[in-house]
Simulated assay, not measured.
Amino acid sequence: MKEKNLFIQDIQDGMKVHDLFIVVESRLDQARNGPYWQMTLQDSSGTIPARIWSPLSRNFEQIASEQIIEVTAAAQSFRDQLQLNIETLNFVPPEQTDLSFFLPVSSIPPEELYQDLMRLLHQKVIFPPWTRFYKKILKNNDIREALVKTPGGKTIHHAYMGGLLEHTLSVCRICDSICDLYPALDKDILLVSAALHDIGKAREISAGVSREYSTEGKLMGHIFLGLEMINPFLSKAQNLSPELIMHFKHIILSHHGELEYGSPKRPKTQEALLLHFADNLDAKMNTIDNALDNPSDNHDRAGHWSQFQRSMGRFLYNPHRTPKPEQPEPEPKPSHSLQKVRKTIARQPTLAADPDFSSSDTDANS
């Protein structure tokens, strides 16, 4: 088995690199001195542009995406961007190495995210028909395997293996927390909808390196595909009234919020509106985290700006934040005279004992 020793995030200008990468995209272009390959390489820590110049470039008729390659290259900064100038290249069969070296993955193992999601639903969803319904779907072997592998998006948010589960779990947690503020909400239908709202992405987006949209994903989108996956389970669900099923479908269909954002319907219930905002909030927070956590841009320090984020139409700023003390400071001991005053007060009858005293009196005088 071929091991990987150097990751893209650790490559620096001037380094000599000999390691494994996977090809995300490649294109044969023409320069003054002959043809050259323009490529993007990837490992689990990120991506880097690479070039194969003539005459070496003439040795390769095709370099397909998702091929694993072993290269010797020189790292060089060009127009403030680090790139690899490849000197040797060999193709490596996938079975000779570990694919996890090359695929970005959630910081929490996807299988652990799945278990956390199931645990949350088990604890929070009370109505037995909803419990049976979500378990039938999420415990289906094909669906479970797809959820563990599928990214949450192609490029904008949660675009890594396990990203869909990470996003789904976060949306469920947001919905659960907000339900504590608004107890009249139907928490059961909201949490089941949150757990299944993006399930169609398992068919919309490839789980491979390129994270390309499938043909059915391009033609129909994950909202329609998700309902198509869910409908066979809904048709067999027991003791779910037509009204509950209709509301559930509306929540799923409207979770993108607006027609121009791909929602067939706009949210028209409290639960539908809440899921839309929870979904949008978690996606935005992840986008900002990724934008400000780009090692090549040195955005790990406060006071730095991100590159322009096209999906949000703005640059993003990493502010200085209030320091968090390691441990709370101990309260100063009261002086001897203050202790005497406290003892005196303790012996006095309290205002609450006075039948004529009410909290409104204090409010009026405050």
Rank of each mutant, 00 (worst) to 15 (best):
S306K: 06
A353M: 05
I63P: 04
P151D: 08
E212P: 10
E258Q: 13
P55V: 10
K139W: 12
H250F: 10
I205S: 06
K187I: 04
G46D: 00
L234D: 02
P183D: 03
L240Q: 05
L20F: 05
W130Y: 08
A31L: 14
L185Y: 08
R310S: 07
I174Y: 06
Q270N: 14
W130M: 00
Q123L: 09
D13H: 15
K236H: 11
R203F: 03
M161H: 11
N318F: 02
M39S: 03
T344A: 08
H320P: 05
I108H: 09
G152E: 02
G163S: 11
E329R: 15
R32I: 10
T344K: 07
V92N: 04
V125W: 00
T344G: 01
M1R: 10
R32N: 11
N239L: 12
G14M: 05
Q42S: 09
L225Y: 04
Y213L: 15
Y261N: 15
I156P: 03
K340R: 10
D186T: 08
E204S: 12
A184W: 11
F308A: 06
D363F: 12
D116G: 04
I69T: 07
H276Y: 12
L181P: 00
R203P: 00
A195M: 10
E260N: 15
H247A: 14
S359G: 12
F7Y: 11
V341E: 04
E87L: 14
S45W: 03
D282W: 04
S254P: 01
Q307Y: 11
S210V: 13
R211S: 06
V71A: 02
D297N: 14
